[in-house]
């Protein structure tokens, strides 16, 4: 993509200007999620919506029925490896702990992989391991506190009120992610 101001060329996947006056500049990648309208609206009752005409009709929940086409990739920051996990794996293990280049990462997802998002599971120097413990809830292995899988907030137990910090990430077509991060690891 280009910016109007300087015509610099940016990679939208990296969030970085690759050529032109802004070369090297990085945009802050926001913790957006990909999900269905139903699921989003349920959790954000006062949400607003982009109201343009449709350019297609085919991007619906059924897309997740071919999970091998997709990965969830994590942005660990400039110069750091960007690991990814296959959507199929996340559908099987919707509370997924792993490590990459010293980062303790947690990826959570809803049914079929909706609203996949990533968190840093290192808290005050300690690394927590999470496991699913009910619909939308997970527990950690240190204190058995209960956490919301979508917000990363501790709902009850010793760590109640604590919120895991979000790591930016995105659902991506697998081929795209491999093209931009050829050295990156994909966990299958």
């Amino acid at each position: 993509m280009r910016d109007v101001e300087t015509n610099s060329l940016w990679s939208h996947l990296l969030g970085k200007a690759m050529r032109g006056e802004f070369k090297g500049a990085e945009l802050k990648i926001l913790p957006g999620v990909m999900t269905t309208w139903s699921e989003w609206r349920l959790r954000h009752p006062r949400t607003t919506l982009l109201g343009m005409s449709r350019t297609s009709r085919s991007y619906r929940e059924a897309v997740w029925e071919k999970p091998r086409r997709f990965v969830y990739g994590v942005h660990l920051g400039a110069g750091r490896p960007s690991p990814a996990v296959s959507l199929k794996r996340l559908q099987q293990e919707p509370v997924f702990n792993f490590e990459s280049a010293g980062h303790a990462v947690l990826i959570t997802a809803g049914e079929k992989g909706v609203s996949a998002r990533s968190f840093n599971r290192k808290l005050k120097g300690e690394i927590l391991v999470f496991s699913a413990s009910g619909k939308g809830v997970m527990t950690d292995d240190r204190t058995s506190s209960r956490w919301d899988v979508f917000t990363g907030e501790c709902l009850g137990g010793k760590l109640k009120g604590t919120v895991l910090s979000i790591l930016p990430g995105t659902i991506s077509f697998r081929t795209a992610w491999e093209a931009f991060f050829p050295e990156g690891r994909i966990v299958e």
């Binding site: 990679s11 990648i29 093209a179």
Partner: peptide
């Protein structure tokens, strides 16, 4: 200038 990211990039490596 914050960015939500999803989808296919240009057909070249980073």
């Amino acid at each position: 200038f914050l960015l939500l990211v999803a989808g296919i990039p240009f057909p070249s490596s980073a």
